[in-house]
Design a protein around this nucleic acid. Structure first.
Lengths: 188, 188
DNA sequence: AAAATATGTCAACATCACTGACATAAATTC
DNA sequence: GAATTTATGTCAGTGATGTTGACATATTTT
């Protein structure tokens, strides 16, 4: 017999009415399929971030550093405000991560030429290397995956991901990517 | 003139050699396309979790609670060890969240019938309601997105997400989903 | 009886996120 | 030129989520 009721199970075992039939419990096949997709999406993202995390650990960095360095590397000259809009985090959250990356010489700042209040962000050589080191496994993973699909199917996938983005945010994403000549629905 | 050099910019402005040409800096079109996809994947996931987070806030819960309650709801009778394998977090991280959910009567435990060490997890009525409240926006979003694609395209998308999962983990995902009669590549 | 397993728990810690307020410098507007 | 707005940085405090490692308990397996 347990000397102390440390877990919550003993009393609740009998009262665990996990499935009473009061509410309509039926889930349509369509909903079930969506739940499956939702789970696949979760698993895909879980594994997608895994490799990067391992590399980041060796630098004492976290996923936030990855995101910052990725976007600064891929869109050199980004302003702080741009990053805030991309990552959808608060200024304070970004500041901490950014400060570390600047102090450790992964990212550097330049005054805006037109507006001198702006701090344009660039990766240093050191930052470029880290960015590429982090990007490579992800690029490889996507290349491997995408190579199993036809051109048309690849377009479908691109459209799928784009459509998952909230309507309000789609234009922002397009504008950002346009800087690099990239558009969600293929090149112009 | 600044009384104190609070930012790092003043000195580094001139030394911001963000793009020296020592390393091979060329990125292939293919790699650029992959980076675009990677970003779309990031944005899609960012927005995908947003709605749920708002609901969770009203309960004082976070995304971790969402994940736990989702999987327990969708796979009733899950063991703690199963959840650890699904979420890929440590026992301690899960314990904290699970404890709250059990104490607040969203999740209940039952002894395993064959192995009495096991704590089989189920959602209570209260838990069912929260799970559905959280799932609905995601289901809707996916339904809306998927409805813009043909049956074949939908299969492509499903295959895409599944292929993004690490090889080592694919069988686990299949096994899990098989419990509900779901398979990544359509029904048997 | 001993070993392995499933679970729970503790202490200590790191990262990443939040809020709200305030400071500075530069650009814009009146 | 003065007032306002904008872009950025900073401070103090807080909370959620994750980590490691050690240990306890009950139960099953060997």
């Amino acid at each position: 017999m347990p000397s102390k009721n440390t877990t919550l199970i003993d009393q609740s075992t009998n009262s665990c009415h996990q499935d009473n039939k009061e509410a309509d419990h039926t889930i349509s096949v369509r909903e079930e399929n969506m739940l499956t997709l939702i789970e696949l999406f979760f698993f895909a993202y879980r594994d997608f971030t895994e490799e990067g995390d391992e590399i980041l650990d060796t630098f004492g960095f976290g996923r936030a550093h990855h995101r910052v360095i990725h976007f600064v590397h891929h869109y050199p000259g980004l302003r702080v405000a741009d990053l805030l809009g991309i990552l959808k985090i608060t200024k304070q959250s970004l500041a901490r991560v950014l400060k570390q990356l600047i102090e450790q010489d992964f990212i550097c700042q330049k005054e805006g030429s037109k507006d001198r209040r702006e701090r344009l962000l660039y990766t240093t050589q050191k930052g470029n290397e880290l960015a590429e080191q982090l990007a490579n496994p992800q690029i490889e993973r996507f290349e491997k995956t995408m190579s199993t699909f036809s051109k048309e199917e690849q377009q479908t996938i691109e459209k799928f991901l784009f459509t998952l983005i909230r309507k309000n945010n789609r234009q922002d994403v397009i504008s950002l990517m346009a800087q690099n000549g990239h558009f969600p629905s293929g090149k112009p």
